[in-house]
Design a binder for these strands. Structure first.
Length: 291
DNA sequence: TGGATTTGACCAAT
DNA sequence: ATTGGTCAAATCCA
């Protein structure tokens, strides 16, 4: 009842609210996305095919990371804000139709998902997205089930965080192929937040440069055998090798946590990728005695 | 041989 | 009774 309020709530130098900070970040990301677009147009003019393709791939990664983080922030804001007045900044990554926000890599966020409750009765954070690359989210997942779903052409695959045991990480992920497009789209349902990555020691940063993403770093072993849905198994097998070498799209919900929880400096996609790479390495070297 | 995946069985919710 | 989600033994594979 007692609403404790400071005497003055109108002093201009008041610290920016989290949503203000988020808007600022969104704005910067939008600028970045536009710059990446211009860069791509410039890169397309490079005459040598080899250099051009390599550069285009890099630009594409940058765009993907920017668009994904944009959509994350925007969906987050929509989630926490009932106001529609700030919709002005919510359109950069919004694309065709429907109930979501589509990133450049196809990630579609903020669809409504069936609510679930944890053991304690609390509603679990749930997020759905449509993506062509369900494997590239920067986390290590372990498959624990597969189920044919009524009226669905493809089975649903069930994953839990690869560190669910040793770090008691509750995060789970359902992946369901939605169509046979080229590339096919997958509906990814993320349930609960990762807690495992909060356990990394700070000094991991020290090891960054020496151990991280040198050429073709495989950020996670998720690609190995996940996504072997009945319909896609042979094709996916063929793609494994290339998929394993892909750089991570954006570990979106890790972004969620990172940028919603603090005033951390914004990491560049490359920095972010390295960050995730380190975490992956750390996990591999420190864990691995369970199961 | 150990870790990861597969897959049928089981359980809870509806 | 049906369905989605999870378990766990069997199996695979590096």
């Amino acid at each position: 009842m007692a609403m404790r309020r400071p005497k003055s709530e109108m002093s201009p130098p008041a610290p920016p609210s989290p949503s203000d900070q988020r808007d600022a970040v969104i704005e910067e990301l939008q600028k970045g996305a536009q710059l990446a677009d211009s860069l791509r147009r410039q890169v397309e003019l490079i005459p040598e095919p080899g250099r051009r393709d390599a550069a285009l791939a890099n630009v594409s990664d940058i765009s993907t990371a920017l668009a994904s983080s944009l959509s994350v922030l925007q969906s987050e804001r929509e989630q926490y804000s009932c106001s529609s007045s700030d919709a002005a900044t919510a359109n950069a990554a919004r694309a065709s139709g429907g109930g979501g926000v589509r990133a450049r890599n196809g990630a579609l966020r903020s669809r409504k998902a069936k609510q679930r409750r944890g053991a304690d009765g609390q509603e679990l954070p749930i997020e759905e997205m449509l993506t062509e690359t369900p494997e590239n989210d920067g986390f290590h997942w372990r498959k624990y089930g597969e189920k044919k779903i009524l009226n669905a052409e493809f089975p649903r695959l069930y994953y839990r965080c690869g560190y669910s045991d040793e770090h008691k990480c509750p995060a789970k992920k359902y992946v369901q192929q939605k169509n046979n497009n080229d590339p096919p789209e997958f509906l990814v349902t993320l349930i609960d937040n990762h807690t495992c990555h909060t356990l990394f020691p700070a000094e991991a940063n020290q090891r960054t440069m020496s151990s991280s993403s040198s050429a073709n770093s495989q950020l996670l072993d998720f690609t190995k055998a996940s996504l072997s849905s009945a319909a896609g198994v042979s094709r996916m097998k063929e793609e494994e090798d290339t998929a394993a070498g892909m750089s991570v799209a954006v570990p979106s919900y890790a972004y969620d946590e990172l940028y919603s929880s603090s005033s951390l400096p914004l990491l560049s996609p490359t920095q972010w990728e390295m960050e995730m790479d380190i975490k992956s390495l750390y996990h591999r070297h420190s864990g691995g005695d369970s199961y």
